[in-house]
C-alpha cells in the first residue's frame, strides 16, 4: 500500500456491501430463507475520525465491524482500505492488512485468553508480525499499558485476566489493539458490559488515543448518547440498511429518518 492520499480516498470505503447468511436446510430438505445481515451498504470513514455505527441487536452493526477486520467476507460489494481492495486478500498482503486493522470486542471477560498473562496477550500481535526483540517488545508492552491507563505498567505485566476488573480487562484489550500502531480500529460495543462510571472512562481513553496517535475508529454501539459523546460522524443502521449518516450533532438535532426519530424519542433520560 503506497502513496496513500487521504484527500483522494477515504480510509475505509464500503461500496454496495451485502452479507447474506444461509441458514441450514430444514430437516426434510426444506429450504431456509436467506438472511440478509447487510443489504447494499455504502459507507466512507475518513482518516482520523471516530465514526459511530448505531443500531439495535440484529441490525447488522456487528457484521459490518467483522467485515471490516476481515473476520468475515462480504457476499457482494467492495471494501477498500486506503483505496485498495481488501476483498480477496491472502498471504503476505493479508498479513500486512492484519497489522493495520485491529478490533476491540464487547465482552472483556471473553476476549482475553484466561491462560495467557497480560504481557503475553498484548505482545502477541508484535510476536506474530515478528516485530522487535524480546526486550524491545517488553518495553513496548509496558509503555502501551501505561498509555491505556494501567499504571505502573510493570505492575500489570505478569498479571492474568482473572486478577483484573472488567474495566481493567477492557483496557488490556485496548492495549492489544493499539500495540501495533494500526491505522484503523473497530470497537464493537466496548463499553456495553461495563458500569457507567467505568464506561465513561473508557470512552475518554478512546478519544484520547485518537487525539494522540491519529488512529481512525469505527465505534459500534446501541447507545445513541455514547455515540454522540464520542463520535464525529454517526450512521444509523436498521435491519441491514444504513438509514442515515450525518454528524453526531445533526443526527440528534435534525433526524430525518423515522427510525432515527423513534430512537431519539425512546432514549432514556430524566423526564419527570
Amino acid at each position: 500500500m503506497t502513496n496513500y492520499d487521504p484527500d483522494k480516498h477515504p480510509l475505509i470505503e464500503m461500496k454496495g456491501v451485502t452479507k447474506a447468511y444461509n441458514p441450514r436446510k430444514g430437516f426434510f430438505g426444506r429450504k431456509g430463507n436467506k438472511v440478509l445481515a447487510l443489504n447494499d451498504i455504502d459507507l466512507n470513514i475518513h482518516k482520523g475520525e471516530i465514526f459511530g455505527l448505531v443500531g439495535q441487536s440484529g441490525s447488522g452493526k456487528t457484521t459490518t465491524g467483522r467485515l471490516l477486520v476481515k473476520l468475515e467476507d462480504p457476499t457482494h460489494g467492495k471494501i477498500r482500505l486506503k483505496g485498495e481492495l481488501i476483498n480477496d486478500l491472502g498471504g503476505k498482503p493479508l498479513q500486512h492488512f492484519r497489522s493495520k486493522v485491529q478490533m476491540i470486542f464487547q465482552d472483556p471477560y471473553q476476549s482475553l485468553n484466561p491462560h495467557l498473562s497480560i504481557a503475553e496477550t498484548i505482545s502477541e500481535p508484535l510476536v506474530v508480525h515478528g516485530i522487535g526483540s524480546p526486550e524491545s517488545r517488553r518495553e513496548k508492552v509496558i509503555q502501551t499499558l501505561e498509555t491505556v491507563g494501567l499504571r505502573p505498567g510493570k505492575a500489570f505485566y505478569n498479571h492474568y485476566p482473572h486478577q483484573l476488573s472488567g474495566g481493567q480487562r477492557q483496557r488490556v484489550a485496548v492495549a492489544r489493539a493499539i500495540v501495533l500502531d494500526p491505522e484503523f480500529i473497530v470497537a464493537d460495543e466496548p463499553t456495553s458490559m461495563l458500569d457507567a462510571t467505568i464506561a465513561i472512562q473508557l470512552l475518554r481513553l478512546l478519544s484520547r488515543i485518537r487525539d494522540e496517535f491519529g488512529m481512525t475508529f469505527l465505534f459500534i454501539t446501541h447507545n445513541l448518547a455514547a455515540a454522540k459523546y464520542l463520535c464525529d460522524r454517526v450512521a444509523v443502521i436498521h435491519e441491514g440498511h444504513i438509514v442515515e449518516v450525518n454528524t453526531a450533532e445533526n443526527i440528534i438535532r435534525n433526524p430525518e429518518h423515522p427510525y432515527t426519530k423513534k430512537l431519539i424519542k425512546v432514549q432514556p433520560g430524566f423526564r419527570f
Binding site: R98, V101, M103, S111, L112, A173, R176
Partner: peptide
Amino acid sequence: PFIEASRVAGASSVRIIFRHIMP
C-alpha cells in the same frame, strides 16, 4: 472473542491451535 482477537492480530492457524486452544 479471544480467538477472534488473535486472528485479527494476524496469528496463524497453527499458533491459534497450539497457543490459544490447546491450554
